[in-house]
Simulated assay, not measured.
Amino acid sequence: MAQSSPATVARPYAKAAFQTALEEKALDSWSQTLALLEALVKEPKVSAYINDPRHSEKQLAEKLISLCGGQLEPKAVNFVTLLAEHHRLPALDQIHAQFEAAREAHERRVEVEVVSAFALSDEQQRKLADALKKRLDREISITTSVDDSLIGGVIIRAGDTVIDGSLRGRLAQLESSLNV
């Protein structure tokens, strides 16, 4: 029997969490809750506990809920219990990622990662954000980093879209076309 991909497993749970958050007008709260839960299950000791078959689903849920120190709303407690019952706690990273993607789509915004060969000035970042806002028809949040191996130019990641305008990328394309 083929096993489902983590993204497929996470989809209905992320959708349910998102619908609940929308109904409650609590997108921020659910986003923070899922981020907390994801961070907890990524902790090596917690991960080992979750993956230990000697613990029941109830024990797993209780442990994770207790680690949250009373920060979970009742519906989030129910959500953790449901995830534990269906052996989906390890999928929390995918659930959180899909929740955030749904939130970005709903709010018509996108997180953009810009990697450049040199640090971008505030003015360059603003111009880039304005151009991307027009192109993607979304509100833009930019995070930047520097990778001097790019030699020159930038790589832009916005969701599933990657624009490689780096000199390293262009040289790789040229090399590929010459080796045909």
Rank of each mutant, 00 (worst) to 15 (best):
A131S: 14
V80W: 02
I140F: 03
V115R: 02
L89Q: 03
I155K: 13
R109Y: 10
A105C: 08
A76G: 11
P90N: 13
A35K: 13
A39E: 15
K134F: 06
A91R: 04
L128Y: 09
L27K: 04
E57Y: 11
L40G: 08
E38I: 10
V110D: 00
I155Y: 00
H87K: 15
E111D: 12
V154M: 07
G70Q: 12
A76H: 09
L67D: 04
G152Q: 06
I163K: 05
L36F: 03
R54E: 00
G69M: 12
I95V: 15
S141W: 04
I50G: 11
G153C: 04
A105Q: 14
E100P: 01
D147R: 06
L40E: 11
I163P: 04
L128I: 12
I142L: 13
V46K: 01
T20L: 15
I156Y: 05
K134N: 12
R88T: 01
I50F: 12
T144I: 04
S116W: 04
I155E: 02
T161D: 09
I140T: 06
L89M: 07
L64A: 02
E111A: 09
L136F: 14
L136Q: 11
E104W: 07
R54W: 00
L150F: 00
E139M: 05
L22H: 03
K42Y: 03
I140D: 02
R54T: 09
F99P: 06
V41G: 09
E111S: 10
G159R: 07
H87L: 07
A105K: 14
D122Q: 13
S66C: 01
S116L: 01
A61F: 02
D122W: 07
A131C: 05
T144S: 10
S141G: 07
P53Y: 03
P74S: 03
K45G: 05
D164H: 09
D122M: 07
S29D: 14
H96I: 03
I151F: 06
A35G: 10
E24N: 09
L132S: 00
A61R: 02
T144Y: 02
S116G: 04
E111H: 13
E113S: 10
K42R: 14
N51H: 14
I155D: 03
D160Q: 14
L36D: 05
G152A: 14
E85V: 05
K133T: 07
S56H: 07
S31Q: 13
I140G: 03
R126E: 14
H106G: 01
R126G: 06
S121Y: 06
E73K: 14
L150W: 03
A129T: 09
K58H: 13
R138I: 09
A102H: 00
D130A: 15
L64R: 00
E107L: 15
L22T: 08
L60A: 03
L72C: 12
E23R: 14
L34R: 01
A39I: 02
L132K: 01
Q59L: 06
